[in-house]
């Protein structure tokens, strides 16, 4: 990389930027079939883990495909590393794990990684070394000579991850990385994502599983029906300032009464004392409810300013 880039490698460098990015799927005759993404403005910075959150069909995959140049925007633009998303050369620095691992089923794990390594124009020794390391990392050493068609869902996912990391990318896009994985697989995947961040990578991931996003993401964007509903740091979005939650252990019933009295004295209104709920879930349900009540409400698009 040229030296000018070294300066840009500050924390504030914008890796991905979308301006007014929207997508309408059309049928063969050019008639619009589905508005999958309404104008979206995002800025994602180096070293972040950015989560796209939303239920099925909310436009997460569409957004990722637009960033990859797999589909073309209906309006607006997507910039990756400052270049247009349809520019192939950006792919040198990108890794992508599709929703399902779309690989060649007649190749085995080694051949698969070798093939994708070739696509990065890597010399043979480097391909071999990267492939071995990645197969080791995703735990497929024992199965590396088996054709992918024999792989289980979890194994397919893992070779998919290895494939996405073959070029040691700076930016990794993961579409529903935890879908279809068992709890252990999910944990491993999350650890992997956090590890990527530690190594200075930028990660954009999508999920409909709220718990996953909460754990690993620095910032999230909540999409619903193709519209950006919330955008910001996870802790900011989840902090409910007018509610105090009290959790304690080993208190007697007397103590409970005392606390209730104390709350009453301060003019507080007791809500509940018990197990806390997954607040992200709440947030999300709130968004959905809000959409039904006030269609068309949009998140502040300058969401980046609160970081």
């Amino acid at each position: 990389m040229p030296s000018q880039n070294a300066v840009n490698r500050s924390e504030r460098e914008i890796v991905v930027e979308t301006r007014n990015l929207s997508k309408t799927y059309r049928d063969f005759w050019g008639r619009s079939k589905k508005v999958a993404l309404k104008p979206l403005d995002l800025e994602i910075r180096r070293g972040e883990i950015f989560g796209l959150l939303g239920p099925n069909g909310s436009g997460k995959t569409t957004t990722l495909k637009l960033l990859l140049g797999l589909i073309f925007p209906t309006s607006g633009e997507a910039l990756v590393f400052g270049r247009d998303a349809t520019d192939v050369s950006k792919n040198e620095r990108i890794g992508y794990l599709p929703e399902e691992s779309y690989l060649y089923k007649f190749l085995d794990a080694e051949e698969t990684l070798d093939f994708y390594g070739r696509l990065f124009d890597m010399p043979p020794e480097q391909r071999k070394q990267r492939a071995d390391a990645l197969i080791e990392m995703v735990g497929l050493s024992r199965d590396k000579k088996r054709q992918l068609k024999e792989y289980s869902k979890g194994m397919t996912r893992r070779i998919g991850v290895a494939q996405a990391l073959i070029n040691d990318p700076e930016l990794v896009l993961l579409d529903e990385p935890t879908s279809g994985l068992d709890p252990i697989g999910t944990r491993e995947m999350k650890d992997l994502i956090i590890d990527l961040k530690k190594r200075g990578k930028t990660v954009i991931m999508s999920s409909h599983l709220l718990a996953d996003v909460e754990d690993v993401c620095d910032r999230i964007a909540v999409l619903h029906l193709g519209e950006l509903k919330e955008l910001g740091r996870v802790e900011d979005l989840l902090r409910v300032t007018d509610v105090t939650q009290i959790r304690a252990k080993g208190l007697s019933t007397n103590a409970h009464e005392e606390i209730r009295a104390l709350l009453k004295r301060h003019g507080g209104e007791e809500i509940e004392i018990g197990n806390p709920r997954t607040t992200l879930e709440d947030l999300f349900l709130e968004v959905v409810r809000d959409t039904q009540a006030r269609p068309g409400r949009r998140a502040r698009t300058s969401g980046i300013s609160d970081t």
């Binding site: 495909k65 990859l68 140049g69 797999l70 192939v88 050369s89 792919n91 040198e92 990108i94 992508y96 599709p98 399902e100 691992s101 779309y102 690989l103 060649y104 994708y116 696509l119 990065f120 124009d121 494939q163 070029n167």
Partner: peptide
């Protein structure tokens, strides 16, 4: 149709 092309075109493939 099998979408394997997506894993290929997201590499620096012309």
């Amino acid at each position: 149709r099998g979408k394997a092309i997506q894993t290929v075109t997201t590499k620096p493939v012309r």
